[in-house]
Design a protein around this nucleic acid. Sequence first.
DNA 1: TCCCTGGTTGCGGTATACGCAATGTCACAA
DNA 2: TTGTGACATTGCGTATACCGCAACCAGGGA
Lengths: 258, 258
Amino acid sequence: MAQTVQRAISLIRKSAEHPLSLTDAAEVLGVHKSTALRILQTLEAERFVRRTGAGTYVLGSGLIELSELALGSMDLRQFAAEHLRQLQQQTGHTVHLAQLTGDEIIYIDKVDSPAFDAVKLPSRVGRAVSIYASAVGKVILAHVSCEERDRLLAHVEFKQHTDTTLADRESLEAELTRVSERGWATDNGEHDAYVMCVAVPIRDSRGQVIAAVSITAIEVIATLDQLKEKLPLLLNTATLISKELGYVTESQPPAPQD
Amino acid sequence: MAQTVQRAISLIRKSAEHPLSLTDAAEVLGVHKSTALRILQTLEAERFVRRTGAGTYVLGSGLIELSELALGSMDLRQFAAEHLRQLQQQTGHTVHLAQLTGDEIIYIDKVDSPAFDAVKLPSRVGRAVSIYASAVGKVILAHVSCEERDRLLAHVEFKQHTDTTLADRESLEAELTRVSERGWATDNGEHDAYVMCVAVPIRDSRGQVIAAVSITAIEVIATLDQLKEKLPLLLNTATLISKELGYVTESQPPAPQD
DNA sequence: TCCCTGGTTGCGGTATACGCAATGTCACAA
DNA sequence: TTGTGACATTGCGTATACCGCAACCAGGGA
């Protein structure tokens, strides 16, 4: 269904990776050049792709503008930005902000570590995070309602990415119980063998966990234990962000201001 | 040509503004609901839109991911990021980074001022900037070759946005001469009556001007003269970024390192 | 219970997008 | 200058992919 749209999207994706000549484009789609041309012309008119001087097509500004619009509408991102930056400076590690959006968890912000390991991290704003093989995924799963958890895990199939990946729903549930009790989750190289994370939840004004902050490092830079030492900083950041969202902790009733 | 693709893009655009029900979508396109459904299903499968619980469609994460990919590949953005933040802190004003891309100038990064005026600024990463009614536009125009300038202005029609907008090519050329001589440009509310900017150019390793940094404020916060006082900071930032790109100033020949 | 609003499915006709082949454009070399 | 090759573009007849219809669901209110 909607073949043409799929083809157009394929071209957009390809042109994001690598500039595309018309011939390339036709090749990629397995169609005639004239067909590819028509699609590209349409995309160009909408500024989804742009022609370079060399006659190749690359991603256009129309797309970037749209995505900024989407990200901008996420209040959480704005509230959190400054805190994330501070956390990065305090810990020295790469900081991620991930939000539960629909039935997936996506990174909505990232502050890279100035250290060189940053370039190795496969994360990217907008990308979906593994829900069972990441610290942010687990910490969010651990704090949502049972129905929500079922919904999120309904279509998940457990792939053994590395030695430490949780193998099935049962071991995940056991882990989630622990996470829920202590209030934070780790990723011991469960998705990428040498990538370690620690994540804590963020709550909205209703007290619901809707997002998570994490710090990440490759093992060469910091072991999981070393990351755990930063937990107080991480928890503090999450508390500050939650407060910005209007969450009031049980221990701290809202001060009658103004 | 490529009717379906155009329809799909219309839906993406609309869904970015406002969640869209299926009926809305059909209405917007002026087609039957089943037609709209097929397009939306395709977009959903590619994660360009997402279904909310309420059955409406909103922008999806696939788009965000793509745009991050595109922005991430822009070296300038990475090199500049830290300097832009410092400039923001030094000046207190909103900082923009704009790059000449194809035949338009687009914002590729932005550091908001913590002051409340930030929310009023209409700029947005990915959006094209007016080429004749903005400080970044003028400062770039002033420093490119004549052919390039002709190319960029070829299809421009001068709209009188405000009282101070330059009215035609002649007055623009006169302004560009001044800008070129002194090395920086201003925007005295030429696009939006109360928005003031000062911009300076950024050069690549060949010495070509390919981008510009600016500081922006609404007049209530700072007058144009007050912004001009920050010129040394602005120029310093631009120099640092240009250096990162490999530009060596005439006065400072490259030191023989290693 | 029925009704009503809004989403989903199956199907036949046709508008739409396709492939082809011819034409245009550019760069480089003879 | 002319020839050659690689690539982009245009026009057109055809068939296929998309459209609108109409019937079918699902949920919520009266």
